[in-house]
């Protein structure tokens, strides 16, 4: 049985400038102290170099609903953490103009065992892609096109 954490530290970061996911992860891990954790699962999403139609991508623009985006990320993370009985959760999400190769999202989950950690990361990622108010616009050839839907899992 997974041991539910009495307090599930949920950290949500909305970032307007490029971030280095490994540095964020390192700081997050340090917050657990010397004992560390038994299991962690991480996902890093980066901007791919082509548009949905295969053209070279200049940049991805991320619009969001300030206020609601953070509230929704926190609600999604909290519900997922409770459902899977995991400990700490970190979600970092870029907004604004993002260059190909730059990180756009980081999801990290700490748990007692690999199963809950892995399952929780996957569920959080899918939920935030569909239920947190973010919208992508691809810039290519000086023109912006709103992305119609998420890529398949």
């Amino acid at each position: 049985m997974p041991t539910p954490s009495p307090e599930r530290p949920i950290v949500i970061k909305l970032l307007e400038a490029p971030f280095e996911p490994l540095e964020l992860l390192a700081a997050w891990q340090r917050s657990f102290g010397a004992a560390g954790t038994a299991a962690e699962s991480h996902f890093i999403g980066r901007v791919r170099p082509t548009t949905a139609s295969g053209a070279p991508l200049e940049a991805l623009e991320l619009e969001h609903y300030p206020g609601m985006s953070e509230t929704q990320l926190r609600a999604i993370a909290g519900a997922g953490a409770a459902r899977h009985g995991v400990g700490a959760v970190l979600v970092a999400h870029r907004v604004g103009r993002i260059a190909p190769g730059e990180a756009i999202v980081l999801v990290a989950v700490q748990a007692d065992r690999r199963g809950p950690a892995l399952r929780c990361v996957q569920e959080l990622l899918e939920n935030l892609k569909h239920h947190a108010p973010f919208w992508k616009r691809e810039w290519s050839g000086g023109r912006g096109t709103w992305v119609a839907g998420n890529t398949p899992l």
Partner: peptide, 29 residues
């Protein structure tokens, strides 16, 4: 539809002062 920054049914009666948002298909992550 979001009312006061939370998802809501489009049929919910609105009250003065509410913030109503129409959200096109979400493409986050």
């Amino acid at each position: 539809v979001a009312i006061n920054q939370a998802f809501a049914s489009a049929d919910t009666p609105l009250r003065p002062g509410d913030e109503v948002a129409f959200l096109p298909p979400i493409t986050g992550g």
